[in-house]
Design a protein around this nucleic acid. Structure first.
Lengths: 156, 156
DNA sequence: ATTATCGAATTCTAATTAGAACAATTATTT
DNA sequence: AAATAATTGTTCTAATTAGAATTCGATAAT
């Protein structure tokens, strides 16, 4: 291991930053009587004409078991609708309803501005750099996880 | 706003990296029949002779309502114990039991090594730099949140 | 001293979460 | 074509999560 004992703190900082950001965003979204995952689904669908749950889960980082419930609750609110796919009998297409699209269009610009406020003091290159750095760590996790799967489980 | 439209992607990357890391760590911890928050409590207590729930929550980033349940489940497993504080009648002290300390001592070094594997390709300065960058973003969120609290809620 | 305010922890609720098991459908193999 | 395997989405469970309300003890103000 080429790193010293500083890595626990960077990870703790990752959690802290993640948590702070979520609560910052959630507080804003709660005014719409929506949860953050629900709003995430809406803005993800807002850019498209609908998509399958599988893709929607990949975009929003919501696992499939969870997504079913999130979408159902949005359906109850009349913001989203499910319809069967014609090509694949297993699949569905999830779309915004009229009301859902109205929410999207009326709130997304302001939401974006709200989030963007976090980066008021950032230069564009700084943002890209941070993203690249996070991507590097992400890749390291993927790699380590991959190695780990094949391994014999004699750890601990 | 001095940033262009790249900031949504850096935030998505933050979530992705966070999620990947948690699942990487959780998979390892699950072998102990413990959840990640439970193990986090154990290693946090392991460094000390016990602490109040309030401080424990601050260290682990677990909110107090959640912490009560996490600690109770660890108590059921016999890994942790609560005792009333003598100084403050409202307070409690949470400690590892013998069994809890055994788990800590027998698993923490390997856990640390497991996590450390993520940073095999990092130079120490790179780790510190990443931490500083995350801290900067964290600070930006805190600042923005602070401003926001005082504000009239006419957004959206 | 009494009241009022503050602080610590628990309880409660609705929602999310991951993970496993499942049913239904499609794709692949033989 | 028939059997097998893989994929899609739902359902189920235990745990976590944030947030609000509550209880009880401590502190401050009058």
């Amino acid at each position: 291991m080429s790193s010293d004992s500083t890595f626990p703190t960077v990870l703790r900082q990752l959690l802290r930053t993640h948590q702070a950001f979520l609560s910052y965003a959630a507080r804003h979204v709660h005014r719409l009587e929506l949860t953050l995952p629900q709003y995430d689904v809406i803005i993800t669908l807002g850019k498209t004409a609908g998509m399958q749950p599988k893709k929607l889960g990949e975009e929003t980082l919501i696992t499939k078991g969870t997504l079913t419930g999130v979408v159902s609750r949005l359906e109850d609110k009349g913001l989203v609708e499910r319809s069967a796919s014609k090509k694949d009998g297993r699949s569905q297409i999830i779309r915004l309803t009229e009301a859902g699209r109205a929410v999207y269009e009326q709130t997304f610009p302001e939401h974006l501005a709200h989030i963007g406020r976090l980066f008021d003091d950032y230069a564009p290159e700084e943002i890209s750099k941070l993203e690249a750095d996070l991507q590097r760590l992400h890749q390291a996790v993927i790699t380590a996880r991959g190695d780990h799967i094949e391994q014999v489980d004699d750890e601990f």
